[in-house]
Design a protein around this nucleic acid. Structure first.
Length: 627
RNA sequence: GGGUCGGUAGCUCAGUGGUAGAGCAGUGGCCUUUUAAGCCAUUGGUCGUGGGUUCGAUCCCCACCCGACCCA
């Protein structure tokens, strides 16, 4: 087996940790004696010059020059140079953990170290610490990526973001900004008298939105539950319970697509305010964005996708119908029938008939208007068909008291006056439920416990729910949601390298489940049209197991299965349970030959007949060990 | 879902139908003010996986896996 160099490097570094121990030094002590962060030393050099300080962080460079050495240590505030003289550094001493100059060969880039010494400036003018004592705080046994090129491989950046934040200050800062923004949102809402509640992520129904849920099982209760697609219905229960201003900053799970702006697991701040309507929220959301902009960034103008956006100005407010009319001249408010609405759509070039007038309006809005909304815009007056939880407008019940926020063409929040008439709400839900049955692609469920809570009376209520990630993307100028989520969802994997390092035999994590069928099941499913090949080129791999142990009655047997690659989108189709039997004892070669004949007779012919446009390649048979 | 591009040493990247390359990192030396230090020597590879074509494939063909970008 070829050994990887990483294994050698890792072993070498482990050996250095062992060497440190043999000198009486613990390569993993429990704490440091840091007195200053790096940035503080750089900022306060004038007053600190000549003072003794202790810094701690990751060793990022090492330039040894005989009896001198220069290094850089990086902590969460920045990088600082260390200046070491052979005779100026305290020799190795087990009592206080000092690592002497003679033992600095035990250090590697990436190690966590601590250095004590006087603040000074080198001849070249760089602020440094003249090291009098050096300690190893953590031996790193893996090498960092090349620090000048950084980590470029996008997959590695996503899987190991912690390496990116070590090497790329802009990434490090960006994630810190995410945290500060969340804190700013909290302080903003807390300052306005809101109470932050924790609402359940495990929910028996997945109400409060239209999205495919993640399903899970609660062992203790023996029932299925869903991960929250929304926390709204729980915030409303809190309002029923008597709290007038509540919010949650929570995790939302939607089992749908992943792309630049969608992630299955994301964060939202969701508020509920009693005794107010959606107009209150228009003011609230504007003020929130302004507060975050000023308190985190100290400005109100941001460049988003090449547009300068000013959060300090009053936001434009326009109804959805009016926005569509302005753009394409079609006024859906005038439509009396669905046919008229679909005709308007068709005239505008959209030939996908919608199931209701409201949905036709939304379609037109999504296609023609949404992307054009660059400056912060509050679009209100959504059709009731897509807003089962919002209150109808008093003067036009086809529309509801709701608004969405659009910035730089992106939807950044959804807000409405909550429907609190339990009879109306239930009726709307039932209607939406029938729509669901019409279209299996949408999901609604009825939460009767919630309806019951409504029946005790929920005061007039309104809520906002801007997505945190989208907000962060806007404020930090990122166009990819993976660059604002530190741990984006990835298919789990163990690299071949790690398999070797950790001695893992079968480095498959969370394998896609194989579909295993008998020939007969397979053929009948194909004939019924329930199974179809995913790609045009398929590979069949027979696996044969020969049972020639002992002179069993009837000679030896061979059994096995066939794996077909390309038939299923992400996994292997396994056809199990075919057998051959022979009076004489079979050799491996004979068994293979017989199996291939069997394949030719049954499977290959079946494929030619059933899927003539697909090509099936039969790979040489693999012989499995007889158990 | 459709299209395009990519996967070669720990990292960043060249390259070729015939023994696999560089820089950095690593290892061993030299070096008292360096700044991606320098100099000398040197280790290190399932060329994403599986098939096919071929005397021979990392390279050509097919499929699959992983990822990126664009489009819907």
């Amino acid at each position: 087996m070829a050994s990887h160099q990483l294994v050698d490097i890792r072993n070498g570094r482990i050996a250095k940790a062992v060497s440190a121990r043999s000198l009486g030094l613990n390569p993993y002590p429990s704490r440091s004696r840091r007195t200053h962060y790096v940035q503080a030393i750089l900022d306060q050099f004038a007053s600190l010059e000549g003072q003794t300080v202790t810094v701690a962080g990751r060793l990022m460079s090492w330039r040894k020059q005989g009896a001198l050495a220069f290094a850089h240590v990086q902590d969460q505030t920045g990088k600082l140079q260390l200046f070491l003289r052979r005779n100026g550094v305290q020799p190795t001493d087990a009592k206080d953990g000092s690592l002497g100059y003679a033992e600095t060969h035990l250090l590697d880039l990436g190690d966590i170290i601590e250095a004590t010494g006087q603040v000074m400036r080198t001849d070249r003018g760089e602020i440094s610490v003249m090291v009098s004592q050096l300690r190893l705080l953590t031996k790193a046994i893996r090498p960092l990526p090349d620090q000048w090129s950084g980590l470029k491989d996008r997959e590695q950046v996503l899987r190991k973001r912690y390496l990116d934040t070590i090497l790329e200050p802009s990434s490090f800062d960006r994630y810190a900004v995410v945290c500060k923004m969340v804190a700013a949102i909290r302080s903003f809402l807390n300052g306005r008298g809101f109470l932050e509640f924790q609402t359940p992520v495990l929910q028996p129904q997945y109400g409060g939105g239209t999205a495919k849920p993640f399903k899970t099982h609660v062992n203790a209760l023996g029932c299925e539950m869903y991960l929250a697609i929304s926390h709204e219905l729980y915030l409303k229960r809190l309002i029923v319970g008597g709290y007038d201003k509540v919010y949650t900053i929570g995790r939302y799970f939607r089992n749908e697509g992943i792309d630049r702006s969608h992630h299955p697991e994301f964060s939202m701040v969701e508020t509920m305010t009693a005794y107010e309507n959606y107009e209150y929220n228009m003011d609230l959301i504007e003020a929130m964005f302004r507060h975050v902009a000023v308190s985190v960034f100290g400005k109100t103008e941001f460049t988003v996708r090449g547009h300068v956006i000013d959060f300090g100005m009053p936001w434009r407010r326009v109804s959805m119908s009016e926005a569509v009319r302005e753009k394409i001249g079609a006024d859906f408010r005038a439509c009396q029938t669905l046919d008229e609405a679909n005709a308007l759509l068709s005239a505008a070039g959209i030939h996908e008939p919608q199931p209701s007038i409201g949905e036709a309006l939304v379609k037109a809005f999504e296609v023609f208007v949404e992307k054009e909304l660059i400056q912060p815009t509050l679009v209100h007056g959504h059709p009731i068909e897509i807003s089962p939880l919002a209150k109808p407008l008093p003067d036009d019940p086809r529309f509801v008291e709701r608004f969405e926020i659009f910035i730089a063409g992106m939807e950044c929040g959804d807000n409405w006056s909550e429907q609190n008439d339990p009879v109306q709400l239930l009726a709307t839900w039932r209607k939406a439920y029938r729509a669901d049955e019409r279209d299996a692609g949408t999901f609604h469920t009825l939460d009767f416990d919630f309806i019951e809570a409504m029946e005790y009376g929920m005061p007039p209520t309104t809520g906002i729910g801007p997505g945190i990630e989208r907000m962060v993307m806007i404020f930090t100028g990122q166009e990819n949601i993976d660059d604002v989520i530190f741990f984006p969802l990835m298919r789990p994997a163990i690299s071949p390298l790690n398999a070797e390092v950790y001695g893992i035999q079968d480095p498959v994590v969370a394998p896609v489940e194989d579909l295993a069928l008998s020939f007969e099941e397979f053929e009948s499913l194909c004939k019924e049209g329930l199974l179809k090949p995913h790609s045009h080129h398929l590979t069949a791999k027979p696996h044969v197991r020969v049972w020639s142990v002992a002179p069993a009655p009837g000679g030896s047997r061979a059994s096995g299965h066939i794996e077909i690659e390309g038939f299923l989108a992400n996994s292997v189709l396994r056809l199990a349970g075919y057998k051959i039997q022979s009076a004489e004892v079979l050799s491996e070669a004979d068994a293979k030959k017989r199996i291939l004949e069997l394949l030719e007779q049954s499977l290959a012919r079946f494929f030619r007949d059933t899927f003539p446009e697909h090509r099936l390649t039969v790979a040489p048979a693999t012989v499995l060990q007889a158990a």
